[in-house]
Design a protein around this nucleic acid. Structure first.
Lengths: 228, 228
DNA sequence: TCAATTGTTAAGTTTCTGTTAATAAACTGT
DNA sequence: ACAGTTTATTAACAGAAACTTAACAATTGA
C-alpha cells in the first residue's frame, strides 16, 4: 500500500484529502510542518508522494520542494491557491511533478496522484530481465519461463521467486530474506508461505534437469543449485 | 514546405509573423482560438511548429501546450508578453521548446523557429508505421488493420493499442505502461479502461489466427503473443 | 441532433495466495 | 540405534486479488 504525505496547514483540506486517499486505497499521513516533511522523506520509510501546500507556517514550500528533490525522487504535487502563480511556477521549476489549484475537486486530486505515481513508477522498473541456463530460460520481460524449449506458465509470485533464486545460483536464502526480497519490505506473513511456493515450483520443474534444481538447506532456507 | 501555426489574438503580431514566415519560405496558418490549435494539431496534416501566445481568449495557453504535448511532439514556441514570466516558465516546464518575449523582432523569431525545427527534425526520425505478421497488417499511416486480406475497422484507440502491443511482440506491458504509452502522460483515468479496450479488440480479432493473440498475463498486464 | 467512440462501474467468474494441519524427514543427545 | 525434537513437505481450504463482461454514461465529431 502506498503512503501519501499531505503537508497542509488547513484542516479542512487535509481531512478531505485523507478521506479521498483512504477511499482509493492509499495510506495517508499529514503534517503542517515543513521540517517534518523533510525528515519523513529522509527517514526509513519515506512516502510514495507528497501533496505540498507551499505556504506552510514554518518554511517556504518551494524550498522544501527543492530540498526534497536534492536527495530523492519522491514525486511532489503542489497545492497552490488560485492566485499564487509564483508558487506554481517556482515549484515546477524546482522539480515538482504537477500542481493543483485550490479549491480542488478531490477526484481530480486522486486522478493526478495516480497519474504522477504511474509516471514515476515506470522508470524504476528492473533492468536485468533474462536468465539462461542449461535448458532453462527465465524472461521477466515476457513473464514466462521456458524449460527444455517448452513455455511454462508461472503465476507472478512463483516466477519472481524462481527468478530471484536463479539470479544468485548456489546462494542460500533464508525465508526471511526471500520474504523481504520477493514479497517486499512491508509484507507481514508467515514464512511457511515460502515452503508452499517452493513446492509449487518444484512440481512444475520436476525432473527437468539434473544440472539445476531447488534445494532445501535444512535449518537455513533454500537455494537454486547449479552444477558444472 | 513546412507549415507554421500562429496562435495569437493580436492582429498586428499575427500579420507580422505571417509576413516574415512567408518571406523565409514557410507556409503559415493563423488562429485566435486555443481549441482550434488542438484540432489542427490532431488533424490529418498537423503543422510543423506552433507559435503560441499564452493569453488566448478561449483557453489557457499553458493548458494547450500541455495538451499538445500529451499526444504529439509538435514543437511549441511561447510568445509571452514581457511581464508574463509565469507563462514562460510554466510553458517550458510543460514541454515548450522555446519562448520569445513580446514585442519581438521578427528576424529573431525566424531564427528561433529555424533553430527549433532543426533540433526537432533530428529526433523525428521516420517511424515504423506498418506492422505485418501472418495474415495481420497494421498500417498506422492509414489507421487501419487488415486481417486475412479483409479490412477491419478499428476505432483510433483500439488500433493504437493494438499497434503498440504488436510493435513489441511477446513483451508484457503493465496497464500503467499502456496508459503512458498509448493514452499519454497526462491521461488521468482508471486503468480498467485497458481491460475494456482489450476485450473490444478481442471480439474483433477473435479466432483469426493461432499464430498471434492478445494474452493476459495474470497479475501483470497484457501482451501480443506471437508464435513461431 | 444523432451515432460512434471512449470511459466508468459493478456484478460475476477465475486464478492465485496464504494459512492450516497432518505427515514425513532430518537432526540431536543419549 | 533410539526416542524425542525440530524442521520441511504436502494437500486442502478459504479468502483475496485480478480478470471478464455487459450495460450504462460521457464525450466527441459529423
Amino acid at each position: 500500500m502506498e503512503r501519501i504525505l499531505i503537508a497542509d496547514d488547513d484542516k479542512t483540506s487535509r481531512e478531505a484529502l485523507q478521506l479521498a486517499l483512504r477511499r482509493d486505497g492509499f495510506e495517508s499521513l499529514a503534517t503542517q510542518s515543513g521540517a517534518e516533511v523533510l525528515s519523513l522523506c529522509k527517514g526509513e520509510n519515506p512516502p510514495a508522494l507528497v501533496l505540498l501546500e507551499p505556504a506552510l507556517p514554518d518554511r517556504d514550500g518551494i524550498e522544501i520542494c527543492k530540498e526534497v528533490r536534492s536527495f530523492s525522487d519522491i514525486p511532489v504535487i503542489i497545492l497552490s491557491s488560485r492566485d499564487d502563480v509564483a508558487a506554481k511556477v517556482l515549484g515546477l521549476a524546482f522539480g515538482a511533478d504537477d500542481y493543483i489549484t485550490k479549491p480542488f475537486d478531490t477526484r481530480e486530486v486522486m486522478a493526478r496522484v495516480k497519474a504522477v505515481l504511474r509516471r514515476t513508477r515506470i522508470h524504476n522498473k528492473p533492468k536485468n530481465t533474462l536468465i539462461t541456463y542449461e535448458n532453462l530460460i527465465i524472461d521477466m520481460n515476457r513473464y514466462e519461463a521456458k524449460i527444455g524449449g517448452k513455455v511454462c506458465e508461472l503465476p507472478p509470485k512463483e516466477i519472481e521467486l524462481l527468478f530471484h533464486l536463479a539470479s544468485n545460483p548456489n546462494k542460500v536464502f533464508t525465508r526471511d530474506e526471500l520474504l523481504d526480497d520477493v514479497w517486499g519490505f512491508e509484507y507481514y506473513g508467515d514464512s511457511r508461505t515460502i515452503d508452499v511456493h517452493i513446492k509449487r515450483l518444484r512440481t512444475k520443474l520436476d525432473g527437468v534437469s539434473d544440472k539445476w534444481f531447488l534445494k532445501t538447506v535444512w535449518g537455513v532456507g533454500y537455494k537454486f543449485e547449479l552444477n558444472e
